[in-house]
Design a protein around this nucleic acid. Sequence first.
DNA 1: CTGTTAGCGCCTTCAA
DNA 2: TTGAAGGCGCTAACAG
Lengths: 362, 362
Amino acid sequence: MAASTLTEVARLAGVSPATASRVLNGSARKPGKDIADRVRQAADSLGYIPNAQAQGLAKSSSGLIGLIVHDIADPYFAAIARGVQDAAREQRKMVLLATTGGAPAEEKEAVAAFAARRADSIVIAGSRSSRTEDRDDNAELAAELDRYCRNGGRVAVVGHPVVGASALEGYHVIAVPNEELARALATELAAGWNGDFVVIGGPEGLFTSDDRIRGFQEGLAKAGRAPAEILRNSFNRAGGYEAGLTLAARIKGGQADTGEATGPRLCIFAVNDVMAIGAAAALRAEGLRIPRDATIAGFDDIETLRDFRPALSTVRLPLEEIGRLATRATAPGADGGDDHDAGLPQQITGEVTLRRSTEVAA
Amino acid sequence: MAASTLTEVARLAGVSPATASRVLNGSARKPGKDIADRVRQAADSLGYIPNAQAQGLAKSSSGLIGLIVHDIADPYFAAIARGVQDAAREQRKMVLLATTGGAPAEEKEAVAAFAARRADSIVIAGSRSSRTEDRDDNAELAAELDRYCRNGGRVAVVGHPVVGASALEGYHVIAVPNEELARALATELAAGWNGDFVVIGGPEGLFTSDDRIRGFQEGLAKAGRAPAEILRNSFNRAGGYEAGLTLAARIKGGQADTGEATGPRLCIFAVNDVMAIGAAAALRAEGLRIPRDATIAGFDDIETLRDFRPALSTVRLPLEEIGRLATRATAPGADGGDDHDAGLPQQITGEVTLRRSTEVAA
DNA sequence: CTGTTAGCGCCTTCAA
DNA sequence: TTGAAGGCGCTAACAG
């Protein structure tokens, strides 16, 4: 038993399919009140559900928004996804999800799949990479996006533009001031601590990570401090944990020299909260305490991590809002109206949030 | 400039659309090797991307899996979503996401929307409710699901069956042994603590919450303990926090009587980890310490919360696996093959995991 | 205001 | 093996 069709509804109501269509959807034309009711009755007596595929085919648009993330279970992306979902609802669209693990090749596949489904717009979250090993894939991704845009698709990228993508119409970038915020974080941290800094970063070439590292170093320099040493690892908890182990060994070595702990030996900046938590877990596992033996700060201000103790110093990013903005940027007519900044990158702001994990006893 | 069509490719390759179709898709028929290459060349010289909507219309199936969750930013659902996404990839399908906040009315809308898009299957996560205020909406949801199944759709529900949905073909339930596991938790907790128990639950009528509460009480009873008092609140961190405040006041009152703390005054069971964390935060905010002043356990073993201190006792649930199983259950031919349990509910297992938050000093 | 006529892009019988 | 024809369900131009 197949789902009933518009034609069946029309027949039951004794009208033409066209009329039925006009009644059941938001057509500009308003059919006669009397006939409209008949159609509506017929429709739900048959349990009629319009075939979105057919509708999409007919008007070549799908009511779909494609969302590309590295990992939907990562709270960073989950938060963004919530925002996207939220904005999608405003636009009465549904969201199609693709997770790529951050690989440009997979992202390209996802874009192609979205294009095949005629998604009205695509939101890409997750750091871009400039690693040489990704060069070709990035180029293909860029080409795929270009084509999608040229065919009328709209895309928004969170953070950096896709490497090599031309600034086509319909291509929006939601800029996140990673560098600037990391600089501000360094400034505040340097004001309260005069020892060494270490950065736990992601793999070289990940823009988000690199920007945050660069900004942090700038802030340090501006405060007259020596640049921080950089430990690179994978951009997740495991990476943070590993780096944490390394640092723990170092800290414990230092303590051995001086006999006993006399306060933090190090201020650690992990380029995202999840890595920071990983690092903190490693330190703890090695018997070190925060902020007593080392202070630590992260980046993102992941909601689920706010109950972590000691409370993690970080930079608050309006993740959900970012998702919303990105999605809205791709809405038809989003850059119309009074907005004179049409086509300019959206600007996001964040906020340095110092908490217990970087408190140095006076 | 619209995307190029199969017809254009065919023309460029000098063949008929039918042939082109056979080449470009996995048709049973094998066209001539030579002609096949011509078509493929034409295709990617034009940057041809098949129109999934048209394909879907023609063969009435869409390669889409609909996923319904309360909130994608909730780590519980995010974890399940990862599993779904994973299994979807195995099936070479994409996932359509709908978030409903848990309202049956919204869930019904989501099912209808998925049906409209001709989703091949639907996975519903998130607790069912039997609250009287939801009765009508639940009925509509059930009706919508029935219709969807009758039209050939496949659905999997995590936890309880949808109230009132008939056990149609294509309707699967992934049963989660909440009651049994909560009972086991109570048993273990009762073995190590001889004081009072309190349960922080969700609103009455939420199956997941009710099952866990019932199981817990059973376990207590079996251990010869008095039933726990039950505090009900919303099924999220805020609800846990509020309950925590109440309990904190009570604990502090008790302490005033005896002069000073002499060990935990209460063992708290929150029906999910997020509520447990909320409650813990409230206790801490009121100056109480865990497990010194009160012990606490949750349920789910949310990954992001594993670094929480003191480590939270909980019941581990294989969330990602649950998502995967649910999705696989809806795969065509999933209940065929050697499996004699076709159509029977899938069974999940969990594991009581006692950690620091319920350690009572000897 | 309603009904009729064409497709949207593809797949799938059929006949050649 | 390949091509021609019809239809999937709906909408958008026309005509009445």
